[in-house]
Design a protein around this nucleic acid. Structure first.
Lengths: 332, 332
DNA sequence: TTGTAAGCGTTATCAG
DNA sequence: CTGATAACGCTTACAA
């Protein structure tokens, strides 16, 4: 087997000619409190440094009954918004003294349940979840065993705190822009209507119509799922039906936008393309031939707030839900 | 404090009217081996299930001297290639019975060192690192304390095993395509030449020139870093100098490509744009007005191989370095 | 077939 | 100021 033996605090104590206790106190910075002789302190620290001593996490957490870990369940790391969130949460958790365990659910409720079970078995002290099911009981069953908060998406009819983007407001603004600019017809392509962000985005769209005194046409709103393919199918169908493209189009995600753009490219239709808006931003959107206005989620703040929420729950306090505003990235 | 108490195996044993040992054996699936009465087994399992028992990881790892964790240090999760790698590694590690601890270095050597130190203190059993420094001693210092392999990038003059994409071959093919198609002039924009992927990509480019019997011009190869801004600066400078765009252009990363495209858009120059090729693929590249051929890294295989390497090191075996082929995504 | 007991590496209480 | 010692929850010889 391996040659990666580790020294224990006993080894350090022995090498420094002190007791286990003294070594422990020194290494945990309690030297002051216990008035340990300066010489002793230095000797212990020197020995520890020389041998790169680092205490056993397992022993420490066994003793302290704290794992020092938080769990994050996220659909896919290849989704830019979720990757940004994960990165922000990782940095912030570590700064707060927690190691973040990131696990992916692939947007499948079964894998998600397995992921949560895995993290609970790993004894995370708290759980931050981007839920992919709208069935509250999927989540409430864990709620007695571990502090749990939702981020990015929320689930109805349950008490679990959530931190989500205030999508409605930003979509209203985004779509409002187009209406103000004189667009008579703004079509909406969205994802699964069970997911809260879908509902929020649609609500924002409808609010914009209302604000502009427009009535929604029957062929303005279409919802399937967030797969790229769906974007392509929807725009194809719309074009086939009307023999033209809509004046303006809002897509609920970058993937849907990709589908739309892929179709426009395949049919060489940029010239007749709708004015495009989308939810979520990405650096590559700057490189499209068409300017796409985008609602840009603030992943840093989503991270900060959701972290604060779990930490509150862990501390036995109430955690408030929060809405985080998105910013608009206007490209025209 | 919180109401999230956990049952111990002693509780389960007591509730099932057996000893700690029996409970442990049953719960670890050793019932057969110790010929425990069927009724006893069922009783224990029933009680455990009823109370959602899950054993303390800390106690378990303390006892077994195995943390059951692997560490991954990656520059940024917002880089699509690294996110794909992290996701693949997470899934595969979990399947192999390890929890992956993902930590980001932000491509800064100091933060990277801190990240590694953090993971070592957390007692990961093995470490998979995308190195952001070319200083071997940054890494060899850890090598006596924990099994370490590089992925995606390698570091010269050190014995640490690596698993990287065979960039040279794919870039040769990519650039060769353009040369075969009659391009007389293929310009190369790359990132930091200290990083091994940069060198591999450049080597691939030069091999393509050689294969086509071309001599490299003095204004064909430019290397700065992988920031988007650099792509923009480089293309601007080239255009200013020559009063035109190159016939063909290879960018060493998507970010550099973004810079180039941003410039082309800003100056409305798509009509005179070079034939574009880039390293790393992204779904949004399908949506550009220009077809961009891309070398697509195989993150699943990078994950599989690097995981296999650390696991080999952990088992005390030799770990071989590996080159993973990339595939070409041709868009014209 | 089941139970007893030791020990993994820490930390913290309590004596000295 | 420093040192024994117990306890955290679990696995596993070894006994019974």
């Amino acid at each position: 087997m391996s040659s990666f033996e580790r020294l224990t605090i006993d080894d350090i104590a022995r090498l420094a000619n002190v007791s286990r206790t003294t070594a422990s106190m020194v290494l945990n910075g309690h030297a002051e409190r216990y008035r340990i002789a300066k010489a002793t302190v230095e000797r212990v620290l020197a020995v520890a440094a020389e041998h790169h001593f680092s205490p056993s996490q397992s022993a420490r957490s066994l003793r302290s009954k704290r794992s020092g870990t938080l769990g994050l369940v996220v659909p896919e790391l290849t989704n830019f918004a979720h990757a940004s969130l994960a990165q922000a949460l990782e940095t912030q958790s570590r700064a707060a003294g927690y190691q973040l365990l990131i696990v992916t659910s692939d947007d499948e409720p079964e894998r998600e349940t397995a992921a949560i079970a895995h993290l609970v078995a790993r004894q995370v002290e708290g759980l931050i979840v981007v839920p992919c099911s709208s069935d509250a009981s999927h989540y409430t069953q864990w709620t007695k065993r571990v502090p749990l908060v939702f981020v990015d998406r929320r689930v109805d009819d349950c008490e679990i705190p959530f931190v989500v983007t205030d999508a409605a407001v930003s979509v209203t603004e985004l779509v409002g822009d187009a209406l103000t600019a004189g667009m008579e017809e703004v079509v909406y392509f969205g994802g699964q209507s069970e997911l809260s962000p879908s509902r929020d985005r649609l609500a924002g769209y409808r609010a914009a119509l209302a604000a502009a005194n427009k009535t929604e046409h029957t062929d303005w709103v279409f919802q399937r799922d967030y797969r790229r393919h769906s974007g392509q199918v929807l725009i194809e169908a719309w074009q086939r039906e009307h023999g033209r493209y809509p004046q303006a189009l809002f897509t609920g995600s970058i993937t849907l936008l990709e589908g739309v753009l892929a179709h426009l490219i395949a049919t060489d239709s940029f010239a007749h393309a709708p004015r495009l808006m989308t939810f979520d931003d990405h650096p590559l959107l700057d490189c499209l031939p068409l300017p796409v206005n985008a609602a840009n989620q603030n992943s840093t703040r989503l991270a900060t707030q959701s972290l604060a929420s779990v930490l509150a729950l862990i501390a036995g306090e109430k955690a408030a839900s929060a809405w985080v505003p998105a910013s608009l990235h206007r490209r025209r």
